[in-house]
Design a binder for these strands. Structure first.
Lengths: 99, 99
DNA sequence: TGTATATTTGTCAAATATTGTCAAGTCAAA
DNA sequence: TTTGACTTGACAATATTTGACAAATATACA
């Protein structure tokens, strides 16, 4: 998801992985893994990527987070049940947060 | 969410934290934190808890995971957008997983 | 009040997980 | 067959999470 998006963006700009990873001050092996989805980027990298590749930061962050969420729940049988519990209880969660 | 559930279950059985934590072979300070929601239990502990407190294991696991998901996304503005992305792409995610 | 027991909190060390680096690998184009 | 881009795997460096312990607070009750 996130991986595909940044690859698209990079290719649209005709940039090499090497160039992007240099701009992010990151080993290109690591960038490669991120772009292939076998490593998850850090939040700060997502933000830099959005800027660098002229992507929509908010959107990229959402896909990046979605990947992390999936990562967390993938082992569960009924992923949707879990997502629904979260969704239905957001307000409640926020309340408890204040304590 | 998960925290409240296990507290309920424990109180229903008239057990002390000390007793539950002993049965789980866990420091009771740690169990206390879990029951208050300031620490997240390990999966194995959730399973043992379900058994010990006569709770529904599957349900407890779902609430436990929901907490973890919320933990992950709470900083994001539109949590529901993120959850929807996951939900809508589960099939797609599973496909990519195979590679 | 004073004592005993239960729960909660803070801090630090140990365990685990994540992120980054390096060297070696594949692949395609020239 | 050399070159450049990308990929992979193993390991090192960091960061995060979990657990242990001591001390603080709360609750019950003689």
């Amino acid at each position: 998801m996130f991986a595909e998006k940044i690859r698209q963006l990079r290719e649209n700009k005709h940039l090499l992985q090497r160039q992007v990873s240099a701009a992010l001050d990151m080993d290109n092996a690591l960038y490669c893994k991120i772009e292939r989805g076998d490593r998850i980027a850090k939040r700060e990298h997502v933000i830099k990527l959005a800027e660098l590749l002229d992507g929509n930061e908010e959107e990229l962050l959402k896909y990046w987070l979605a990947d992390k969420v999936y990562d967390l729940v993938q082992s569960e049988e009924n992923v949707n049940d879990v997502l629904n519990i979260v969704s239905e209880n957001i307000v409640e969660y926020k309340k408890n947060k204040l304590l």
